[in-house]
Design a binder for these strands. Structure first.
Length: 819
DNA sequence: GACGACGACCTTTTT
DNA sequence: GGTCGTCGTC
């Protein structure tokens, strides 16, 4: 435990940490130790005399990763036994926790489903179709009366309209409304919204929104935006509930405040308006998520909302060379809307930022790959010291090819996440339906998967019967007769078969943990058979993914049990994964690789060497900015984020021609290249772009610090990680015994609790004492601090070298004593 | 209900 | 250029 951490802070960091008499706004320039300030501030709050209890502190972040890392760092300061009771997490996860506890107030159950973006889009597609049909039908009826011969015309009209009502666009508008806390009623009454819809030729959006809202409620489901909207409504309509949380959260901290939207801002205000104990940290220059509803005004005008705000500016950059910092400053200066600050670095001056011109996108790939090889030779960098950042994911392919050609290892971020894969979504849909049978999207997904002869026609009938009677699809399925379902005997039997299957799982669920019920479902639903039908590569990979999921569930249950939570239900598992993203299961640190990612996903990261590529007009800045100055400024901030990821070397490149949408296109260098003071650039020796190279920038010799790599934080996904360490552990067998090929030998599953009994759960655990060193399967080496309780309740506090302090129930803990 | 052909589409994406 | 959704055929 480190008690003198205050000494490690610079003056402004220290001031920000120790001030807590009122609202504070910490403007944290890139690389200025923002996370350090937040963690130390929380530690400081906990350790003050008459200080705060951990559960009095609410700390909100945007990513699970940020929350986890911060919690670990705080645990290092104040110990895990206190840190674990902090309310620290993403907006969405904290609010879903609150909503599950208070679900009845807003007419939900605590089992509510969380629809991901795909679910919500799929539901919207269905609703758009429905609403348009009805509208067109009504209109023709009104105009011409009942004429069956107009059916064709009706169909055509619907198809035409569907081209305008694109699900993605409709979804964005509804999401935007929710982010501004506008409910369907409010939307219908909102003149501005209606005019916007008319301008977009989509007057029916208000109806679509209303129906979407109702259908979600009917299904007992919330989308990501609803988690915010309903939290706001809960606090607004039930002052006694708000009072409870307001009294509990005596101090509220928000990370990345520049990325908050109106709803998030409003909820923070609900909680803090009265006592004003709030601290927000952020950098307006790094606000790059306005397309997701983030409103930079929240940070720009924070001091207007909280008039007594004390503002702290962290301006010393500890990450980058002076040249990189100055170049970035000269760029961001071109923005109007910002909080002025003077970021500076006291590191070496460093080398100028190299600018490369390529004739084609392919050549750009070659130039970058060659430069990487050159830098590696010259400075002995590891592969992990490099990142290639681009504006769009589509640009990654060229660089992949260039790197592959030279056998340079790389990893790509982005693309389909684990939980977005079809086979995983199918399995999860079963889980979801078992937990919440009203879940419409889960229902539609699996009613005929694996194929059981229930086709689209039947599903269509169920849907219209359900909507006509205002019940869920499940309710309609259970009582087809009462809801006037017109189906034949055979279909009826198939439907009831499905109902019985799901009901058997529901019954099963009562006395089984998530892992057991999960494997049961996968076996008995027929998913296994479907996946094992043949050994095609796709099926093999699907099988592996499902195994991965099951292993994740096993880990999840085991971990929760170790922490003293014996009954891990399917609901627990689902609510955990609903808000997980791929970034959370960091398969990242599996060695020496170059990183390829979009600038957006690079936010918050740092690399010794950064290549920002594709700096062309209509690409970076994106062609979508049009003539909107606001959008252009956001693109500029995005470029600012890109440059400030670099610690030692930064390179910018553009190509004169590029393949896009299958066509060769000509491009011109990005206007952003001209926004950077030429003093900090090393321009290519080409006519037109060439300028005198600044010799004064000098050259710095980097001290080569031996063959090290930056030690990545030991953070890890709560479970389901794909790291190699865990791959080596025995896997649970879920595949039908008839097809055991290719499967590694697996351990037996103990019938009592469903958790693997492994060799490391040895008898020696009975004699664990303080002071011993142990090796845990998951957390690695650690020292036993103390042991309390006896028998089944025996609990050890262990200080892990890489994972911080943990309290584990010996009964379940999987470790062995080492000498 | 499965499969192949054809056409429309295309930014970024913390949850 | 690559993906996804729709439509027509067996």
């Amino acid at each position: 435990m480190n008690t003198n951490y205050i000494d490690e802070l610079n003056e402004s960091q220290c001031a920000a940490v120790t001030y807590n008499d009122g609202p504070s706004l910490v403007i944290a320039g890139a690389g200025s130790g923002k996370t350090r300030v937040l963690t130390y501030k929380i530690a400081y709050l906990l350790e003050q005399e008459n200080g705060y209890n951990p559960w009095n502190i609410l700390a909100l972040t945007f990513t699970n990763k940020a929350a986890r890392e911060m919690k670990e760092r705080i645990a290092r300061q104040v110990g895990m036994e206190r840190a674990r009771y902090l309310w620290m997490g993403t907006f969405h996860s904290i609010f879903s926790r609150i909503l599950r506890a208070e679900a009845t107030f807003i007419g939900f159950t605590s089992q509510f489903t969380i629809y991901d973006t795909a679910d919500s889009k799929s539901l919207l597609t269905a609703i758009i179709d429905q609403v348009l049909r009805e509208k067109v039908h009504e209109e023709l009826l009104r105009k011409y009366g009942n004429r069956p011969d107009l059916e064709e015309k009706e169909k055509e009209k619907v198809i035409e309209l569907k081209k305008i009502y694109k699900p993605g666009v409709v979804q964005a508008r509804i999401s935007n409304a929710k982010n501004h806390l506008v409910t369907p009623t409010g939307y219908a009454a909102n003149k501005e919204a209606y005019e916007g819809d008319m301008a977009a030729k989509m007057p029916a959006i208000r109806d679509i929104y209303a129906r979407y809202w109702d259908r979600c409620r009917q299904a007992g489901a919330m989308d990501f935006d609803d988690l915010l909207v309903y939290t706001y409504i809960l606090f607004r309509d039930f002052p006694e509930v708000l009072a409870r949380y307001r009294d509990q959260f005596r101090y509220v901290l928000v990370d990345e405040y520049q990325d908050t939207n109106y709803a998030q801002h409003s909820i923070v205000l609900q909680l803090t308006k009265e006592n004003q104990r709030v601290c927000v940290v952020g950098d307006d220059a790094q606000s790059i998520y306005s397309f997701r509803g983030a409103d930079i005004d929240n940070i720009l005008y924070f001091t207007k909302i909280y008039p007594n705000t004390k503002v702290f500016k962290l301006e010393q950059n500890y990450r980058s060379t002076q040249t990189i910092v100055c170049a970035a400053n000269s760029l961001i200066e071109k923005n109007e809307r910002q909080i002025r600050k003077a970021v500076f670095s006291e590191k070496e001056k460093g080398e100028p930022i190299g600018v490369f011109q390529a004739y084609s996108d392919v050549e750009e790939g070659d130039i970058v790959a060659n430069k990487i090889a050159e830098l590696r030779r010259e400075y002995r960098y590891g592969y992990a010291d490099f990142a290639i950042l681009y504006r769009t994911n589509a640009q990654s392919r060229i660089f992949e090819e260039a790197l592959r050609k030279r056998s340079i290892p790389y990893k790509i971020y982005g693309g389909l996440s684990f939980y977005q894969r079809k086979e995983i979504k199918d399995v999860i849909a079963y889980f979801r339906l078992v937990v919440n049978p009203n879940d419409e999207e889960a229902f539609k997904r699996i009613i005929n998967y694996p194929a059981r002869g229930i086709g689209d026609t039947t599903v269509g009938k169920i849907i219209s019967a359900a909507t006509d009677h205002g019940v869920s699809l499940w309710a309609a399925l259970c009582e087809p007769l009462s809801y006037g379902l017109d189906i034949n005997k055979g279909t009826h039997a198939k439907l009831q078969g499905f109902r019985e299957l799901i009901e058997s799982f529901i019954v099963d669920q009562a006395d089984k943990n998530a892992y057991e019920i999960g494997t049961n479902i996968i076996r008995q639903s027929g998913i296994i058979n479907d996946v094992c039908q043949d050994t095609s590569p796709e099926n093999l990979s699907r099988k592996e993914n499902i195994e991965e999921l099951v292993n994740g569930m096993n880990d999840f249950c085991a971990l929760r049990q170790e922490e003293g939570n014996p009954n891990v239900s399917l609901t627990d598992f689902l609510s955990e994964i609903a808000l997980l993203t791929d970034q959370d299961s960091d398969k990242a640190d599996d060695g020496e690789r170059i990183t390829l990612m979009t600038v957006h996903s690079a936010k918050g990261l740092e690399f010794k060497n950064v290549f920002v590529v594709g700096l062309e007009e209509n690409l970076f800045p994106s062609g979508m900015v049009g003539d909107s100055p606001r959008a252009l400024e956001e693109e500029r901030r995005l470029f600012y984020v890109a440059i400030t990821r670099a610690e030692e070397h930064c390179y910018l490149s553009f190509a004169k021609t590029r393949f896009r949408y299958g066509r060769m296109e000509f491009g011109s260098p990005s206007r952003f290249l001209r926004d950077i003071d030429v003093h900090y650039l090393q321009l290519p020796h080409e006519a037109g772009v060439s300028r005198a190279v600044d010799e004064g920038a000098g050259r710095f010799r980097r001290e080569i610090e031996g063959g090290f790599t930056r030690s990545a934080s030991p953070s890890r996904a709560p479970f389901g990680s794909t790291s190699s360490e865990q791959r080596e552990r025995p896997k649970a067998q879920i595949i039908a015994p008839s097809v055991p090929r290719n499967l590694k030998k697996v351990s037996t599953v103990s019938p009592s609790n469903g958790v693997q009994a492994t060799s490391s759960t040895s008898a020696s655990i009975a004699g664990v004492q303080a002071g011993q060193m142990i090796e845990h399967e998951r957390f690695g080496l650690g020292e036993v601090i103390k042991v309390e309780g006896t028998g089944d309740n025996a609990k050890a506090t262990i200080h892990f070298k890489n994972a911080g302090d943990k309290q584990l129930l010996l009964r379940f803990a999987r470790f062995k004593v080492v000498e």
